[in-house]
Design a protein around this nucleic acid. Structure first.
Lengths: 193, 193
DNA sequence: GTCTATACCCAGATAGAC
DNA sequence: GTCTATCTGGGTATAGAC
């Protein structure tokens, strides 16, 4: 994917994605986006009406990409639940540019009400739904959690391990993270595996 | 605690805490702090050199308060691990003004390097250490996690359930949250409790 | 210790030439 | 489609009177 062959709009979306996901909405300036895209700041406004519109476009593209990938990973029915979750976790840790916590905060605090609702829907269909499908296949009747809850918990638990900058959480292996989610801290105390 | 009998500095710290914790460092303006404190914006600078200094002072006070409380809760050795964790979780959900994710992001992105290090130390001694003490009492040799890891995982797992604004996570009971941390999702599938 | 006035900067966004 | 120039508003912080 050479930048030379990309349109200006695509370049803007790419550099904006990196900046928004690393620094958050507020801390990312349109001037910074422009410089990184190799254009002037007013030129941005030829492609987008506002900075918020850029942000929406970035998350739209990101969500659609991840939706595709997550659905693909979930559809392999030959694997165990643990194996599927491990694959997803590793994929997100390697490929996802976003810090979920920042995304969530920006969505609820820095974005207009209607866009907030729209992004929430995007999140649901792209990230939560694939996981719900997965859990539905394994869930038994006496579980105290339904698939929707499990999908949300999964993301909240893995969130800190996805942010790139964190010196502590980055070193933790995906297997260890999953152990807690799947077996809890007591299981690993009482049993060997 | 009547505001009338508080000093101006205390009032500033109180309103700043509420604003910083809800909106984050960047999104909170000194004008807003001043209005809520009932003073003019330049008057802030009689008490603090910079906005960042206010932020540091807020987190210092908050940490020391929580350190006291957490240590108290951890010292009751008659309780089970589950009961202790439940007490701590409920306490934080009821009394902690902060969204840990925002705090963490501000610390690493919006604050000077030296203050960042200082706040990290505060976090360690006030929040992590009490939990480490607790886990040390229960940990067995074959656990794949040490107490320090468990303390950090605990906070990362409960983090989304502490932010006040979230419509989904707020409804979840503390018992359910702890179930996953202590028993995992599989245990609740296979066994009744 | 608190105020008014204001400096200074950087943000998002627009006008209009090329 | 991209630019230069610029508007407008908000931010943090300072000067200096009371």
């Amino acid at each position: 994917m050479l930048q030379k062959r990309m349109t200006t709009k695509e370049i803007i979306l790419n550099v904006s994605r990196a900046l928004f996901m690393e620094k958050g909405f507020l801390a990312t300036s349109t001037r910074e986006i422009a410089i990184n895209a190799g254009i002037t700041q007013p030129n941005l406004y030829h492609y987008f009406k506002t900075k918020e519109d850029i942000y929406i476009a970035v998350l739209e593209k990101l969500s659609h990409e991840k939706k595709e990938e997550l659905n693909k990973m979930v559809e392999d029915t030959s694997e165990s639940l643990y194996a599927s979750l491990l694959k997803i976790l590793n994929y997100l840790r390697e490929n996802h540019p976003a810090n979920f916590s920042i995304m969530s905060h920006d969505m609820t605090h820095e974005i207009s009400e209607e866009n907030h609702k729209y992004l929430y829907q995007l999140w649901q269909t792209s990230y939560v739904q694939p996981l719900v499908k997965l859990f539905n296949r394994y869930e038994t009747e006496n579980s105290i959690f339904n698939s929707n809850e499990l999908a949300r918990y999964f993301y909240s638990i893995i969130a800190p391990f996805i942010q790139k900058e964190n010196r502590f959480y980055n070193k933790v292996s995906s297997e260890k993270i999953l152990y807690i989610f799947v077996y809890g801290i007591l299981y690993s105390d009482e049993k060997e595996h």
